[in-house]
Amino acid sequence: MTGLKKIQRLMGKTIRRKRVWIPLVILVFVYVNNSSLLAKPKTGDPYLLAHRGLAQTFDLEGVDWDTCTAERIHKPEHPYLENTIPSMRAAFEAGADLVELDVQLTKDNRFAVFHDHMLECRTEARGKIRDYTMADLKKLDVGYGYTADGGKTYPFRGKGTGLMPLLDEVLQAFPDRELLIHVKSDDPKEGVMLAGQLEKLPRDRLQRLSVYGGDQPVKALKERIPDLRTMSRESMKQCLLPYIAVGWTGYVPSACKNTQLHLPDRIAPWLWGWPNRFLNRMDQAGTRVILVKGSGGFSDGFDSPEDLKRLPDNYNGWIWINRIDRIAPLLDNHN
């Protein structure tokens, strides 16, 4: 009995030790596998995404989905209007690596580059953009509704006539540039139609394009062009929820491959391996990660020197910018 008790005591001690060191080993593994301190750091400056080209900015406080932002712009510091070819060209010349643009379907089933579903905020016309042909839209002044002083003056009236471009015109104007196309609806028909247009492009051109927007059009587009980098709210969930569950192991879910993620900088630090491990994993999966300032609200970007201080040390991933003319000169490789 004495020998049996000794064996039992030894087994009890062994079990108690395992209860301590097994969780400890797991914790060490999780730390080592996800610590950016042990990951190979990247070098270079961040990559810059210019939201709507070089655009007029506005006060974000109180902005809702139907707010007319043209009626609340800051005092203009440059002559460019969002979503126009001159604004995109100015953004690239200022140092943008990628320009984002919005598309809307017209009455004659063409893709106009314009942000709003309705016309009265920025132009002299009224009604839905899909109720007009592209020929009609070409006659409008896209600078008509902009004011920085509550309607006392309209500094861009008469300067935006004819500047609403077709998506085709943008693709032709910037054949070798990276573009991010925003589908502004949740109509699957638009995804099918956009796929019909984009799939005609050479493969190397498609590799420099990406698309995001409503769940339904993005899903329809991805089904037609599987290799195209896309993003929607649903695709983000399909990637990030399983990653949060198992990403500590280093596993990257299949839904995270060949896609795009727009991550608010207040949420990104909660992801396994942020920043370097996470970014390396996504790079290997063919996925582009774009960091957005704040909590993911209305297009808040890294638009000031103070905003850049929010970035992780030595961060060289993609960042969302509304004032490329201000930010690019602050970074050595974008001038």
Score class of each variant (00 low, 15 high):
K6A: 15
Q8K: 15
R9S: 13
R9D: 13
R16S: 13
I26L: 14
N33C: 05
K40Q: 14
K40P: 12
K42S: 11
G44M: 05
L48M: 05
L54A: 12
Q56R: 05
Q56Y: 03
D64A: 13
C68Y: 11
I73A: 04
K75N: 10
H78M: 11
E82V: 05
E82L: 06
N83G: 13
M88S: 03
V99C: 11
D108R: 11
A112T: 08
V113N: 10
D116A: 12
H117W: 15
L119P: 09
E120Y: 15
I129H: 01
Y132C: 03
D136T: 14
Y146C: 06
T147C: 02
G151Q: 07
K152A: 11
F156E: 04
K159E: 00
T161V: 08
L171T: 06
Q172I: 09
F174K: 08
R177K: 13
R177G: 02
H182P: 03
V183W: 01
K184G: 03
K189N: 11
E190C: 07
G196F: 07
L198K: 10
L201T: 08
R203I: 02
V211P: 10
Y212R: 08
G213T: 08
Q216M: 14
D227E: 15
S232V: 11
C239R: 01
L240G: 09
V246H: 01
V246A: 07
V246G: 01
G247I: 00
G250F: 02
N258D: 10
T259L: 04
Q260S: 14
L263T: 09
D265R: 04
W272E: 04
P275D: 06
F278S: 13
N280E: 15
T287H: 12
R288K: 15
G294S: 10
S299M: 08
S299A: 15
S299R: 04
S304D: 13
N316M: 05
N322F: 07
N322W: 11
R323Y: 08
R323E: 15
I324Y: 08
A328Y: 00
P329K: 07
L331P: 00
H334P: 00
